[in-house]
Nucleic acid binder design. Structure first.
Lengths: 225, 225
DNA sequence: AGTGTGAATATTGTATACAAAACACAGAAC
DNA sequence: GTTCTGTGTTTTGTATACAATATTCACACT
């Protein structure tokens, strides 16, 4: 009579499975901005009914990844240059705040992890693999954000960051930026390790400023093609 | 054969009607934190089917007003003291940022409206009517927030503010705070009208700090009853 | 009395059905 | 040729049906 607790921890409602599938497709660019998302079509493609698809799409709308018009269905959200600037403006405020908080609140263990994540990022850069670099970048920043211990702050920043993932891929590809990324990370890390809030906030601001510049030039380049 | 155009301008999907109804019920305290929200029950009560109710509940979950557990349904979100502090910490960062931006971006028309809203708030205070005061307070702050012109910032702040509405009612009732509220508003307004970002940010911070203190003591009082 | 078991019930998750609105396109009118 | 109109199709919105899981409560067992 063994067999207690087979891993039913991992129950996932279909709507969440669909949600993650669609979300991934949007963030990786598989679904391009402006593309229509039709319930029946997606349902058949995924082998489920319309219901979970509808619910997943609604969730994506609330996350800002799709746009819905009543009676006209959903499309993959188009982010305008203005929209992107708006997102970055809020991120600038929150990321600098976050960097300051991290200086106050980071534990020794967090600091150890931050060092590791920095090294891992350097190594990721050498691989020249965009996906690996992007992941290492997220990991590095997650350590800082999570060290604040403020769940609301964490989810707010992550939601804002998500809006830019599609464009981040583009600019991470650009190898000419890689050295700069490393040095910016180093500056941010050093400030935090030294609990120097002033410097950390400045480093965070510079990091966002440069990201904004990169992404915007990227977009402008795309426009002229 | 008259009777063309009865006001169907206002087409609203049922899910949105239900959403607003439930949202209002939660924010006014008609539904208390922890209360279960059962689909069939609500559907019958509102005279609709489960579908729009489900969709409304999901939307409320994403807004953070409802907590869902898979297969166990939804309950009105309980906000912990910790959760409240977290929300306020983020608001402090964004409201101060917002106040600074307002100084740069407010048009003369906005400034005129801000003065009007300030006077309206003063008058609202004299009525001693909680609902009116709360509305005038929202109006005043909305002018500042909207003057930034940053849609993302606006919706982020509004979402955070919403989390506290239920508690705000409690502390707005406290007449001993009224004079202080007016003077804080005046300080914030004067700084913005003078385009003094430094002072405006400080005023915004003080305003949030005092709100935090009020709400937290309110909660502690409730606990001891 | 307390605990465990199981059937009855209630509730959520998913699928499907039907209604109403949007869309597309062909043909008529000018 | 262009615009209007009407019909057929597609798609979304809402209701309902069915399946699977959770909850409740009575009852037996210790």
């Amino acid at each position: 009579m063994a067999r207690l607790s087979l891993n039913m921890d991992e129950y996932l409602p279909l709507r969440d499975v669909v949600f993650h599938a669609l979300r991934r497709a949007i963030l990786t660019g598989e679904f391009v901005p402006g593309e229509r998302l039709m319930e029946i079509h997606l349902a058949q493609q995924l082998g489920v009914s319309r219901t979970p698809v509808r619910e997943a799409i609604h969730k994506l709308e609330l996350e800002g990844l799709v746009t819905m018009m009543p009676r006209r269905g959903a499309t993959v959200a188009q982010i305008s240059e203005r929209g992107l600037k708006d997102v970055l403006e809020v991120r600038r405020a929150l990321d600098t705040f976050c960097a300051g908080l991290a200086c106050e609140r980071m534990t020794d263990e967090d600091k150890q992890n931050l060092r590791k994540a920095f090294t891992a990022f350097e190594e990721a850069i050498y691989t020249k693999d965009t996906a690996i670099i992007a992941q290492a970048d997220v990991d590095f920043h997650d350590i800082i954000i999570n060290s604040t211990g403020n769940e609301r702050l964490i989810s707010t920043i992550n939601n804002l960051a998500e809006q830019m993932y599609r464009y981040r891929f583009e600019y991470i590809k650009d190898a000419s930026q890689h050295e700069r990324l490393i040095s910016e990370h180093r500056m941010l890390m050093d400030a935090i390790l030294a609990d120097n809030a002033e410097k950390a906030m400045k480093a965070a601001r510079i990091h966002i400023d440069n990201q904004e510049e990169s992404i915007l030039t990227q977009i402008h380049l795309d426009e002229h093609r």
